[in-house]
Every structure is written in C-alpha cells, then in structure tokens.
Simulated scan of single mutants.
Amino acid sequence: MSRVDSQDTARLILEDGTVYRGTAYGARGETYGEMVFNTGMTGYQETLTDPSYHRQIVAMTAPHIGNTGVNEEDPESRRIWVAGYVVREPSRVSSNWRATASLEDRLRQEGVVGIAMRGTRALTRRLREHGAMRAGVFSGDFAGRDTEELLAKVRQSPDMLGADLAREVSTREPYLVKAIGERRFTVAAVDLGIKAMTPYRMAQRGCDVHVLPAESTAEEILALGTDGVFFSNGPGDPAAAGYAVDALRGVLDAGKPFFGICFGNQMLGRALGLPTYKLRYGHRGVNQPVQDRVTGRVHITSHNHGFAVEAPTDGPFDTPYGRAEVSHVNLNDGCVEGLRLLDRPAFSVQYHPEAAAGPHDAAGLFDRFCELMQSAKGVK
C-alpha cells in the first residue's frame, strides 16, 4: 500500500482485522490494549483517570468530547490510565471556568495516543456483536506502515485474560485520608485500583481511611485496629489476584465488617469459592439498571468491569463463611451485581456507589457499611 504522508492521519486496527481511519488525537505514536467502549455522556476526565481502565483503549459513545477541558479537581488518580482513546468529535475549544488545559493537551502531555473518527457507532456495534478484543491505535510515524505489519503487532499484544494488573496501579506506600469532622470509624481500604472519590465518600461519613497497597496481608490490614475493611475497584483478571483473595479470607475469618466494590466484589466471590468469568464486552458507563433483590428497588448505576462473578441466583447458598446470597442483579443481562453474607457482616457490589459525575442512586451503600461497623462496635 502507498505510504500516508500526513502526520495527522491515524488508524485503529482491531484484532479481527477491522480497520478504522481517522485523525490523530492526543499524542502521536502507537499503543495497544483491550478495545472497550464507555456509554457515559459525562465524566470523561474521571474515565481517563480511573485505574480500572489500565491497559484498555476506550471509545466514548458520546459524540462530543472535551467541551469542558480538564482541571485539577476531578481526576480520580495521579495520572491517566487508559492505553488509548477513541472519540468521534473532539471539542475545538474548552469552555469551563475550572479548566486548566484542553483535553488534547493533557493527552499529549501524558503520552496517550488517540484517534478522532466518525465510526464510533460502527465500532461499538462490532464490539457488542463480536466481544471486546485487542486493538492498536497508530499515528505519527506509524500512520503509513503496512496494515498487516501493524495487525500482527496487535495480535501479539497481551490479552486481558490472566492479567494481574491490580499490583501495577496500586499505591506503593500506605496513606491516610482523614475523617471530615468527628472520627467515627477506622477503615482499611485495600487499593486494587482505588478512585479518589471512594475514600472521600467514607471520610464524609467520619471514617479515617488507611489506603493500603494491593498486596497487603490480612495481618497488615487487621494490625491497624480497623473497624471495617474495604476492597476497591481495579483492573485485570480477578483470577490472577490470589494474593487479595487470601487477604480477604483472613479478614472474613476475623469477622471484620467488609465492603467491596467492582473488583472487590469479584474478590469476595472468589473468597467464597465462586468462579469469575469474562463478559462478552463488559459494562462501562453510567446508565446500568441494577435491582436490589430484597427491596425490589432499581438503581441506575455507574459501571466499569469486564469480568463478573458466577453465583446461584435462586436463593441462599452455602460457603466456607456461612450462607450467602446474590443481593443485586443487572436488569440488562442478569449479571450478578452484588453479594452478601447472611451470617457475617460482609457485602459487595459490582458497580460504583461513589460515582463522580453520577449517578448517585447507590451512595447509601456507604451508610450501610458504617451501620455494619457501628453494629460490630456495639457487640464488643
């Protein structure tokens, strides 16, 4: 094929050989990752800085991205984690009083290779029909290279199955997020890819939150004199994070109140002896309907996960820690969205009750965690 001269040209190449062409956006170069899509209409800065997107190329289904630029208040972590970024129509200007830079400038600054293209709807439909797959974005010096050469590199890139990524995004050293106002509880939060809003939500409720590295042992977690233990969201295959499962089993053995979200829900499932599996294309966005099976109430929730727990949904089931049940289900596909133990103070959900940019239907789950800790204190 003839070489492309323009440095503004870019290509997105999927593992199955599908090629999309567009304009370079962000940094120029090459990047590889699992191709996924996000259906959120707001919150692109939170998406970019969510560690759960580590090693994924994210396509935004909202047609216009970058309108409000970026600021220093909304990031969910210390950096952008997405491997690449796909948008339909980048905003030409940033218009918000809090903006400190344009989105494209920030992408360039952090070396995130992206593409702006008209085919985001076709891309999303392909992923829904054929499942998430590996992909690459190519621009700059890579724009004119042979397609077959680039496709071969895509197919040689790492797969998400078996990927242990929580340790790559976790904090290296423990740190403390202090309670806002009077301190009521001490929480140990294991960082498997935690978002900044999560300890903040607990701090608002009077919790001193000790954020710990992903590989923290049960002994290290319990040594803090914690009233409760929290396991965060995070990237990768839950089957590869046996160290976190072992730590959680120690926490459950000690009878400490436990709350997990997203990856933390998968860790609870595996600690209970349940398998996890990879979803066809995952749930990523802020519009997933989830039903509480006890109350029947439906919450519209924020999601970012490509794996799920497989568990019986026809009633309580036995585990090494007593009876458990599926507490929440996704009304779109029946996916398990929550677990809870009936004989110990432990529960988890697959979605994000802390969601910045919304929705906030499920924010009361942090209150429920505090109630469990208060009840456990009352027993002592």
Rank of each mutant, 00 (worst) to 15 (best):
H303A: 02
V36I: 13
A356L: 14
D292T: 11
P213Q: 07
L248H: 04
E219P: 03
F317R: 01
E73V: 13
Y200Q: 11
R3S: 05
N332F: 12
R323Q: 11
R78L: 10
G17R: 12
H328R: 04
A196G: 08
R79P: 03
N96M: 06
G338T: 07
F307I: 03
D208G: 06
A101L: 02
G225W: 11
V93N: 08
A203K: 01
A59T: 14
H303G: 00
G84C: 06
Q291G: 07
V113E: 03
Q291F: 05
N233V: 11
F142I: 09
V309I: 08
E46H: 13
V93A: 08
M267D: 14
E46C: 12
G285E: 01
R145G: 09
Y44L: 12
A244Q: 12
L107Q: 10
Y277P: 04
V294A: 15
A62Q: 06
N71Q: 09
L123F: 03
V229G: 07
T313A: 02
Y281E: 10
L123W: 02
D208L: 05
Q374M: 07
E325G: 06
T120E: 09
R28E: 15
A116E: 04
F366L: 04
W97C: 10
Y85E: 03
A244L: 11
P63L: 08
T313L: 00
G322D: 01
V251D: 06
A311I: 04
L212T: 03
G26H: 00
I80A: 06
G193K: 07
E110D: 14
E15G: 05
A363Y: 05
A271V: 14
A241F: 14
A196K: 13
I80S: 05
P345V: 12
A355K: 11
L341R: 10
L176T: 13
A24F: 02
A357V: 09
H64P: 01
G296W: 13
R3N: 07
G234P: 02
K278F: 05
A254W: 06
R297E: 14
P174C: 10
Y281C: 08
Y243W: 12
L165D: 01
C207Y: 01
L103C: 07
R249E: 15
D141P: 15
Q45K: 04
A324W: 00
E15I: 05
